[in-house]
């Protein structure tokens, strides 16, 4: 019904980016430096470098633009689509600017930082394309908060079901209710799982005990196991939800700070070029 930012406006910004890339490549192809091999110091080198620097500044301006809510101008969707394609075009512009000359110096640091930023952006783009649908399917029309409420209702029901089943079961169920966690540190969030999940432990212990339960308690165990299984399934879904949200967010923790690092390195690169030539 409506389209992703990549197809947006019938690939308008892909066409722009393609034009930038084509122009850079063609110029580079026919460019004969007056002295030596192609590098940043020729007229084309300065042109590509200047354009690349402006492009970086413009790409970073996106962070400001998306937080400026009033007023006219192009919608953020236009900006993001252009940000993605022109960001990718920057690979060509900057690489041709270097003339393929790399070394252990501040210039190459700027280049490498730029590439890491672009790669993190590519990751983000894939996350944005893929994860929303997974997240929606996983939620099945509810929200994380509703899942949490349901889990806490199940906890109460489990404890009630456990009352007639003896102290050991009660303690296991209580521990499962009190110690089960959703989310946590970055790694835990991204894994979408808790290897030591108290509810899972409780479920397997109770299942084991159920096999040796006196016949009078069979029905009680059946009810409790049903509740625990339902809770485990919900926990898995809630953790998956947290995982998806973490994937949608995590790359920005690299993309944005490294952009600022890139900006610093870029300034150092420009200053170095002009003062120590």
């Amino acid at each position: 019904m409506h389209q992703s930012i990549l197809v947006f406006r019938n690939f308008r910004y892909l066409k722009w980016a393609a034009a930038v890339i084509a122009l850079s490549v063609v110029l580079y192809w026919f460019h004969e430096p007056a002295v030596g091999i192609p590098n940043g110091g020729t007229w084309l080198g300065y042109a590509l470098g200047g354009f690349g620097a402006i492009l970086i500044g413009w790409l970073m301006w996106f962070g400001i633009r998306k937080r400026r809510y009033g007023g006219g101008g192009a919608p953020v969707e236009d900006w993001l689509s252009a940000h993605v394609y022109l960001g990718l075009a920057l690979i060509f512009v900057a690489t041709l600017h270097t003339g393929f000359q790399f070394g252990w110096n501040v210039h190459t640091v700027a280049y490498v930082l730029m590439m890491i930023v672009i790669v993190s952006g590519v990751f983000g783009m894939f996350a944005y394309l893929r994860v929303p649908e997974l997240m929606t399917n996983n939620r099945r029309g509810t929200t994380l908060v509703q899942m949490m409420h349901e889990i806490s209702d199940l906890d109460a029901a489990c404890r009630e079901a456990a009352l007639a089943l003896g102290d050991e079961i009660n303690q296991i169920v209580l521990a499962a209710a009190q110690n089960t966690r959703i989310g946590g540190g970055v790694v835990r969030q991204l894994s979408g799982d808790d290897p030591a999940c108290p509810t899972r432990d409780a479920n397997s212990t109770v299942r084991h005990l159920a096999d040796h339960a006196p016949p009078g308690q069979a029905e009680g165990f059946r009810v409790l196991l049903g509740l625990l299984a339902r809770k485990e399934e919900l926990l898995a879904r809630a953790r998956r939800d947290v995982r998806y949200k973490a994937i949608l967010d995590i790359w920005l923790y690299f993309h944005v700070p490294l952009s600022f690092a890139l900006l610093g390195a870029l300034i150092a690169h420009i200053v170095a070029v002009f003062f120590y030539w």
Binding site: I5, G71, G72, P75, V76, L80, Y128, P132
Partner: peptide
């Protein structure tokens, strides 16, 4: 009163809001 129409739609980076 905002130029360009509803801010929610204009601010959506992926075009999900319509």
């Amino acid at each position: 009163d905002v130029k360009g129409g509803p801010a929610c739609v204009r601010a959506c980076p992926t075009g999900a809001a319509l």
